[in-house]
Simulated scan of single mutants.
Amino acid sequence: MSLSDMDDNRTIDLVAPEEAQGERLDRVLAALLADFSRSRLQALIKEGRVGVGGRTIWEPRHPVNAGEALRVEVPPPEPAVPQAEDIPLTVVHEDADLIVVDKPAGLVVHPGAGNWRGTLVNALLHHAKGELPGIGGVERPGIVHRIDKDTSGLLVVAKTEAAHRALSAQFADHGREGPLERAYLAFVWGVPSPRKGTIDAPLGRSRQSPERQEVRAGARHAVTHYRVLEAYPDPTRPGESLASLVECRLETGRTHQIRVHMAHIGHPLIGDETYAKGYRTKARRLGEDARKLVETLERQALHAYLLVVSHPVTGEDLRFESALPPELEALRRALAGS
């Protein structure tokens, strides 16, 4: 079936053929819709835009039965180049070469599948309109490092090609020969022992779930240095601690590094729905105020509070610190029983 003449917001109704019996949903759709790549169809499924037998299906591997009704909702095409959007930003430093922002939780850094709008890049294109000579020949901010959507904190972005090259080199060096520092505040379940240490465990994409990372031999080198700053009492077990505040410093910068490393040593982040699902029951042991805050947090309790870089042009050491956002400061007070 050709979709070259389809209108925007088109709904496509199909019927699974006999040969589709027991086959994966994404493969069935790929065979029926020649103008869509399989990855595009997988994205549509994960966005809740595909129905089977009148039910919305979110899993590309869902088995299809012959004769089942299939429905695909196709959204309007997104522009190939990110568009400027008037999204409020907290700017902590800006000059002709770079900009440092304090990103709130919930804001995606870079446009991608399912997130072409409402990202930090869209916001920066509006904020610095006319001040971006071009990275790679296109007017866009130079992203040299990222933090997860549901992690808050400091992030530096290049405004020129030269600044982008210099900052990228710093991050690639991981601070071995320069001043680069990146440190996070993480609220975790339990108290790591020893209270100060190094997690040296290679990270790679999970073989079971492509959206997760995992520790496994032969994956990419990853090192996190941690130290416990505060330990919080367990109201149900006098003399024991239920949670703690840990400073994590990155020696490398892998996807989900802190989240996976802390879970790996048995102390996953509070509020982390990906790597700490088995720890939900611990919230029941918290005091009432802390329990309510954890149950309504809607993010992992991780904040990028410290960033030190060398200015890409002047060579000056730039140091920035960010206080905990209100929801994490409230959690800190509640956990401490204040």
Results as ranks from 00 to 15, higher is better:
Ala84Cys: 00
Gly134Cys: 08
Gly114Ser: 12
Val101Asn: 03
Thr119Gln: 12
Asn115Cys: 10
His93Pro: 01
Gly118Ile: 09
Pro133His: 05
Thr119Ser: 11
Asp97Gly: 12
Leu107Ile: 06
Gly106Arg: 11
Asp97Arg: 06
Val109Ile: 10
Val108Lys: 04
Val91Arg: 02
Glu85Trp: 07
Ala128His: 08
Gln83Ser: 07
Leu132Tyr: 08
Asp86Gly: 00
Pro133Asn: 07
Gly134Lys: 10
Glu78Pro: 00
Gly106Gln: 05
Leu89Ala: 01
Gly130Gln: 13
Ala123Pro: 02
Leu89Glu: 03
Val109Lys: 07
Gly134Leu: 06
Ala123His: 03
Ala128Asp: 15
Asn115Ile: 05
Gly112Asp: 14
Gly130His: 15
Val81Cys: 00
Ala105Phe: 05
Ile99Phe: 04
Pro82Tyr: 01
Asn115Leu: 01
His110Met: 11
Thr119Val: 11
Gly112Arg: 14
Val109Pro: 11
Leu107Arg: 02
Ala80Thr: 09
His110Asn: 12
Lys129Leu: 10
Asp86Ile: 00
Pro79Arg: 11
Glu85Thr: 04
Ala113His: 10
Gly130Tyr: 13
Ala113Cys: 08
Glu78Ile: 07
Val101Glu: 01
Pro82Ile: 00
Val121Gln: 09
Val91Ile: 15
Asn122Thr: 09
Ala84Phe: 01
Thr90Met: 12
Ala128Tyr: 10
Lys129Trp: 13
Ala105Asn: 08
Leu120His: 09
Val91Phe: 01
Val81Tyr: 03
Ala96Cys: 10
Leu125Gln: 02
His126Leu: 06
Leu124Gly: 06
Leu124Ile: 06
Asp102Arg: 06
Val100Phe: 04
Ile87Val: 07
Thr90Leu: 14
Pro79His: 11
Gly130Leu: 12
Val100Ser: 05
Val121Trp: 11
Gly134Phe: 07
Pro79Phe: 08
Val92Asn: 09
Val101Ser: 02
Ala123Thr: 03
Thr119Trp: 07
Val100Gln: 04
His93Tyr: 15
Gly130Pro: 13
His110Gln: 15
Ala84Leu: 00
His126Gln: 07
Ile87Leu: 14
Val81Met: 01
Pro79Val: 12
Val91Cys: 03
Ile99Gln: 03
Arg117Ile: 00
Leu107Glu: 05
Pro88His: 11
Val108Ala: 05
Glu131Gly: 06
Leu125His: 04
Val101Leu: 05
Arg117Lys: 14
Asn122Gly: 08
Thr119Asn: 12
Leu125Cys: 03
Gly134Gln: 09
Leu98His: 02
